[in-house]
């Protein structure tokens, strides 16, 4: 049981990191990114390939994962920054599918749908499985803490205030002399870097990645985490990730206890309950569990 709880906390930490990355792009700069799993995938593949094929040390691989995702984020932002939110949602969704297809089809680089196995983990094999779990728990949550502190400072810095101003009204920010595009690109890049780092950590925890792992399902979970926690507040991203993990895993035990339904119906009830919880949460707490508290947000 302890091993399971630790593993789920590791996953929650990875989700929290992804939610933090998304929060910079969506929460601060107001750009919807439904393709976040694409950036997570880029980071994961970059680090996995560099550490298994070129034998880079792991920390360097993780950094490379962040850099590759950041570069892709910058490129993406340049193309899409002037799009309205609804267009952006669909374009980013498509982007993630392209990444998944490239990972499936460019076998020479990514090993295709076979995926990459045997990705090293720190001290994996030298210590007991539970020891490795605990080490990774420390690494992931340290990364969450660092990202949280840096991003919270960023959020309260002049840069963060401009981003929120852009989010609330782009035209006003532009009239006030702020180079809107440049700010958006920087925010997207920073967010993508965090997503890439999360992907890299994810790869080295599971020791295996495959294109199927970067399906829209993960995007939905992270968007759910951020919305549940409260878009905009960095603390909200972390609380939301923990909440989502509780929901994903809690429904497992609840659905197991329902009598008189077939296994498929249990699975359907479980996924349905996860979706329904989000709808109810939005309905009764649209600002999330931890609402953003800033002076810039004008009350309607």
């Amino acid at each position: 049981m302890e091993a399971y709880l630790v593993a789920m906390l590791v996953f929650a930490g990875l989700y929290a990191l992804m939610a933090l990355g998304l929060n910079v792009i969506w929460g601060l700069a107001g750009m919807v990114n439904l393709g976040l799993v694409g950036f997570v995938g880029l980071g994961a593949y970059a680090s996995a390939l560099l550490t298994t094929k070129l034998f880079w040390p792991m920390p360097l691989g993780w950094a490379a994962g962040a850099v590759v995702a950041a570069a892709a984020g910058a490129g993406m932002a340049l193309i899409v920054a002037r799009l309205r939110g609804d267009y952006l949602a669909i374009v980013t969704l498509g982007f993630a599918e392209v990444i998944r297809l490239v990972a499936s089809n460019e076998i020479w680089l990514t090993n295709g749908t076979d995926g990459i196995s045997g990705i090293p983990g720190p001290w994996r094999g030298d210590v007991s499985p539970q020891g490795f779990n605990l080490i990774y728990l420390g690494i992931v949550w340290a990364a969450v803490a660092v990202a949280f502190i840096l991003l919270a400072r960023l959020s309260h810095s002049p840069f963060g205030r401009v981003l929120r101003a852009i989010r609330e009204d782009e035209d006003v920010a532009a009239v006030a002399g702020k180079p809107v595009l440049w700010f958006k690109v920087r925010a997207f890049t920073i967010g993508a870097a965090v997503l890439g780092a999360a992907g890299a950590l994810y790869a080295h925890y599971n020791a295996y990645i495959a294109p199927e792992g970067f399906a829209p399902l993960l995007t939905i979970y992270i968007v759910l985490a951020l919305t549940a926690g409260g878009v905009g507040a960095m603390r909200g991203a972390i609380i939301g990730a923990l909440f989502v993990m509780l929901l994903l895993e809690g429904t497992r035990f609840l659905s197991g206890a329902i009598p008189g339904v077939s296994p498929v119906q249990k699975a359907a009830l479980r996924e349905g309950a996860i979706a329904l919880s989000l709808i109810l949460l939005l309905r009764f707490r649209p600002q999330g569990l931890i609402p953003e508290t800033t002076r810039t947000k004008a009350s309607p």
Partner: peptide, 21 residues
């Protein structure tokens, strides 16, 4: 039993539950 959702992420979490719990 657990549903792997045809997805390695969900599959790993399901396997953890089966093995550890």
């Amino acid at each position: 039993f657990e549903d792997d959702q045809t997805n390695p992420d969900a599959g790993v979490r399901g396997a953890r539950k089966l093995i550890d719990v």
